[in-house]
Nucleic acid binder design. Structure first.
Length: 422
DNA sequence: TCTGGGGTCCTAGGACCC
DNA sequence: TCTGGGGTCCTAGGACCC
């Protein structure tokens, strides 16, 4: 089954956005940099190692980062440049082997079992990747090499910043045992705390705990997976392509008590983003989910599975609006004045959209049966909008609802970085 | 001065079917 | 008259990852 040797590599750019900024602007090198956010709002998307030394982390509100790290330099972010740099790094990896699994803008797994005859052992390949990325792209990248994906990923985390760690076959237990459980993929704050409550803090301690006990605490699937990971049993293979199972868009709101028209406008905007991506790939989805976030980070979701897949902007908007009000009205009861801080729309249960469902045009209008009203007209509208955007750019048509925060809004380029292939 | 936006997977209860 | 057991789909919520 699996080839011998530490032939799975995990390559992970260090503090990617922040390093990119330091590459683009030499004045930022050696200084604490935060991309995104700012002392007056928003969150930090990435922090340079100089900033991390002061406790600044990604996802942290800007004002808190500013307080932790006096002299912190906030930069807005050059997202198109990140895309270009990330792609350039992936091109270097593709030179080593075609078996590359890109899992985000800045990290990938490689199976180099077929490349060792050309480039030498995994350690040499890892070193070569690091040198080339540094020389040709200008960025620091850490690489972990091991027998499995899970272990390679842990190795690259241990290698950071700007390092290489190879876990030789046979040395897995000695490597893993002293490491904190939080390094296991799937152990976050909640699971970490539950394990700590049992006195389990290291991967070795977890490996020695009976699987049944772990499953009892964390649930069958999670417990089983974690036990397997701790015991270095990871059957996953490097896969070069993977299709998305859902598509979504969300936005934080600047006004907390939006009017009905505002909610509709935001949902139309989000539905437009989502359905555009679906149509561009000839896909559609049956399940529509709306997420609403209220003050205090309280969230509610409502979903509806439709009899046929949808990809029309107007139809998605109508379904989303019903779902959103259902969530808002259900929540309004217990939290007196209902303040909304975010709206999201996503579509799952995806299918190919090869045939157009003409037959539904014959049925009476029904809000839960999309396309039942003037389906042909909706498709025509979407098609012409799509055509205009193809010709004149994605901003050519459409509009931004006023309740979407303008100054603090993340740019479209940032959203695109995070989008998965459909 | 108060938390972005893109995703994946799992759970549990209920409906429904055979 | 009370009552089986397995399987699938749907919905809401939650943890986690980048």
């Amino acid at each position: 089954m699996s080839a011998p040797g530490a032939t799975i590599l995990h390559a992970d750019l260090d503090a990617f956005y922040a390093s990119a900024e330091q590459l683009l602007d030499p004045a930022l090198r050696g200084r604490p940099v935060a991309v995104g956010g700012g002392p007056r709002g928003g969150v930090v998307l990435a922090a340079s190692y100089e900033a991390k030394a002061h406790g600044v982390q990604g996802g942290m509100p800007g004002w808190r980062a500013a307080r932790l790290c006096p002299g912190l330099l906030f930069v807005r972010g050059h997202f198109r440049e990140y895309q270009r740099l990330g792609d350039a790094v992936m091109a270097v990896l593709a030179d080593v082997t075609p078996t590359v699994e890109r899992i985000s803008i800045d990290e990938a797994f490689l199976d180099v079992s077929g490349a060792t005859h050309l480039f030498g052992p995994p350690a040499a390949i890892g070193a070569r990747i690091r040198e080339r990325v540094r020389a040709e792209v200008g960025l620091p990248i850490s690489v972990g090499a091991a027998r499995t994906k899970h272990l390679a990923k842990i190795a690259s985390q241990v290698a950071k910043p700007d390092g290489l760690v190879v876990v030789a076959p046979g040395g897995e237990r000695a490597f893993l045992d002293p490491l904190p459980v939080g390094l296991i993929w799937g152990v976050g704050p909640v699971h970490g705390q539950r394990l700590a409550d049992l006195g389990i803090r290291t991967i070795g301690e977890l490996a020695r705990t009976p699987s049944s006990a772990v499953e009892h605490i964390l649930g069958n699937a999670v417990g089983h997976k974690l036990s397997a990971m701790a015991q270095d049993e990871d059957p996953r293979r490097v896969v070069t392509s993977r299709r998305a199972r859902s598509v979504g868009a969300q936005s934080a709101l600047s006004r907390r008590r939006p009017e009905r028209d505002d909610v509709r406008a935001v949902l139309a905007h989000l539905s437009d983003r989502v359905s555009r991506r679906l149509r561009a790939k000839g896909r559609a989805g049956r399940t529509v989910t709306v997420a609403v976030r209220f003050t205090g980070m309280q969230r509610a979701t409502r979903s509806r599975t439709l009899p046929v897949p949808v990809a029309a902007t107007l139809t998605l908007t109508e379904v989303a609006e019903r779902l959103a009000w259902s969530a808002i009205e259900d929540t309004a009861g217990d939290t007196a004045p209902c303040e909304i801080t975010l709206l999201g729309v996503s579509v799952s249960n995806l299918a190919e959209q090869r045939v157009i469902q003409l037959e539904l045009d014959l049925e009476p209008p029904d809000p839960w049966r999309p396309g039942s009203a003037p389906g042909a007209a909706r498709r025509a509208v979407d098609e012409s909008m799509d055509a205009i955007r193809t010709r004149f750019g994605s901003d050519a048509v459409g509009y931004l609802p006023v309740v979407l925060r303008r100054g603090g809004a993340v740019p479209d380029e940032f959203r695109e970085l995070a989008e998965h292939d459909l």
